[in-house]
Amino acid sequence: MDETGKELVLALYDYQEKSPREVTMKKGDILTLLNSTNKDWWKVEVKITVNGKTYERQGAVPAAYVKKL
């Protein structure tokens, strides 16, 4: 869990989004888990830093590609 009490997951593999509802992640990324009720796809929040600014993006990733921490 992070400092706000939200559950975290670890990306076990790289994943490139294939639709606007998904998010890209790299192996080793730590993501915030938002919903894991679907056994195949979990909704997560990814933090992306671009030019020193951090953005948050929500989307789905394959459940088999992440592990709860």
Rank of each mutant, 00 (worst) to 15 (best):
M1V: 13
M1D: 12
D2N: 14
D2S: 13
D2K: 12
D2A: 14
D2V: 14
D2R: 10
D2W: 14
E3S: 14
E3C: 15
E3T: 14
E3M: 13
E3N: 14
E3P: 13
E3Q: 14
T4M: 13
T4H: 13
T4E: 12
T4A: 12
G5I: 12
G5F: 11
G5C: 15
G5T: 13
G5M: 11
K6T: 11
K6I: 12
K6P: 13
E7Y: 11
E7W: 12
E7C: 15
L8H: 09
L8D: 02
L8E: 06
L8T: 07
L8G: 01
L8I: 08
V9N: 02
V9W: 05
V9C: 13
V9E: 00
L10R: 09
L10M: 14
L10N: 04
L10K: 07
A11R: 01
A11S: 04
A11H: 02
A11W: 04
L12H: 02
L12K: 04
Y13S: 08
Y13V: 11
D14M: 04
D14S: 08
D14N: 07
D14W: 04
Y15V: 02
Y15K: 00
Y15I: 00
Y15C: 07
Y15N: 01
Y15G: 02
Y15M: 02
Q16W: 11
Q16H: 12
Q16V: 15
Q16I: 14
E17P: 14
E17D: 04
E17G: 15
E17Y: 04
E17Q: 13
E17M: 11
K18H: 07
K18I: 05
K18W: 04
K18F: 04
K18N: 08
K18E: 07
S19F: 05
S19N: 11
S19W: 06
P20E: 12
P20M: 08
P20V: 08
P20Y: 08
R21I: 11
E22N: 02
E22S: 05
E22Q: 09
E22F: 05
V23W: 04
V23I: 13
V23S: 01
V23Y: 02
V23T: 04
T24V: 02
T24P: 06
T24N: 04
T24H: 02
T24F: 02
T24M: 03
M25G: 01
M25C: 06
M25T: 02
M25H: 01
M25L: 08
M25D: 00
M25Q: 02
K26H: 09
K26D: 01
K26I: 07
K26Y: 09
K26Q: 09
K26C: 11
K27E: 05
K27D: 02
K27S: 06
K27G: 04
K27C: 07
K27N: 02
G28T: 01
G28Q: 01
G28F: 03
G28L: 03
G28I: 02
G28A: 02
G28M: 02
G28Y: 04
G28D: 04
D29L: 05
D29G: 01
D29N: 06
D29T: 05
D29P: 00
D29I: 04
D29A: 05
I30W: 04
I30R: 05
I30K: 05
I30A: 01
I30D: 01
I30H: 02
L31R: 03
L31S: 00
L31Y: 09
T32A: 08
T32M: 10
T32L: 14
T32E: 06
T32G: 06
L33G: 00
L33I: 03
L33M: 02
L34R: 02
L34P: 01
L34K: 05
L34S: 01
N35E: 15
N35L: 06
N35Q: 10
N35R: 06
S36I: 07
S36N: 07
S36M: 10
S36A: 12
S36W: 07
T37I: 10
T37Q: 12
T37N: 12
T37V: 08
T37E: 14
N38T: 06
N38P: 04
N38V: 04
N38H: 10
N38F: 06
K39R: 11
K39S: 11
K39C: 12
K39A: 12
K39E: 10
K39L: 10
K39Y: 06
K39I: 08
D40H: 14
D40L: 12
D40P: 01
D40I: 14
W41R: 01
W41F: 07
W41Q: 01
W41I: 03
W42K: 00
W42H: 01
K43W: 15
K43S: 11
K43F: 15
V44R: 00
V44L: 01
V44K: 00
V44N: 00
V44Q: 00
V44M: 00
E45H: 07
E45T: 09
E45F: 05
V46K: 13
V46M: 09
V46P: 00
V46A: 09
V46W: 06
V46E: 00
K47L: 13
K47M: 11
K47F: 09
K47C: 12
K47D: 03
I48C: 12
I48V: 13
I48N: 06
I48S: 06
I48K: 07
I48T: 09
I48L: 11
T49V: 13
T49F: 11
T49S: 10
T49R: 08
T49G: 03
V50W: 07
V50A: 08
V50L: 12
V50I: 14
V50H: 09
V50Q: 09
N51D: 14
N51P: 03
N51L: 08
N51I: 03
N51R: 08
N51G: 12
N51K: 07
N51C: 11
N51Q: 09
N51T: 05
G52N: 08
G52Y: 06
G52M: 04
G52P: 00
G52L: 04
K53S: 10
K53A: 11
K53G: 08
K53I: 14
T54I: 12
T54V: 13
T54Y: 08
T54L: 09
T54R: 06
Y55K: 07
Y55M: 10
E56S: 15
E56I: 15
E56G: 11
E56W: 15
E56Q: 14
E56V: 15
E56F: 15
R57W: 06
R57Q: 05
R57N: 05
R57L: 08
R57E: 02
Q58A: 09
Q58V: 14
Q58F: 06
Q58M: 09
G59V: 06
G59N: 00
G59A: 04
G59R: 01
G59Q: 01
A60W: 15
A60L: 15
A60C: 15
A60F: 15
A60H: 15
V61D: 02
V61E: 01
V61S: 01
V61F: 01
V61A: 03
V61G: 02
P62S: 02
P62D: 03
P62H: 04
P62Q: 03
P62T: 04
A63L: 01
A63E: 02
A63H: 03
A64H: 12
A64F: 08
A64K: 12
Y65V: 06
Y65F: 12
Y65P: 04
Y65H: 07
V66P: 05
V66I: 07
V66R: 00
V66S: 00
V66Q: 01
V66G: 01
K67M: 14
K67A: 10
K67C: 15
K67V: 15
K67G: 06
K68V: 10
K68L: 14
K68N: 05
L69T: 04
L69S: 02
L69Q: 03
L69V: 10
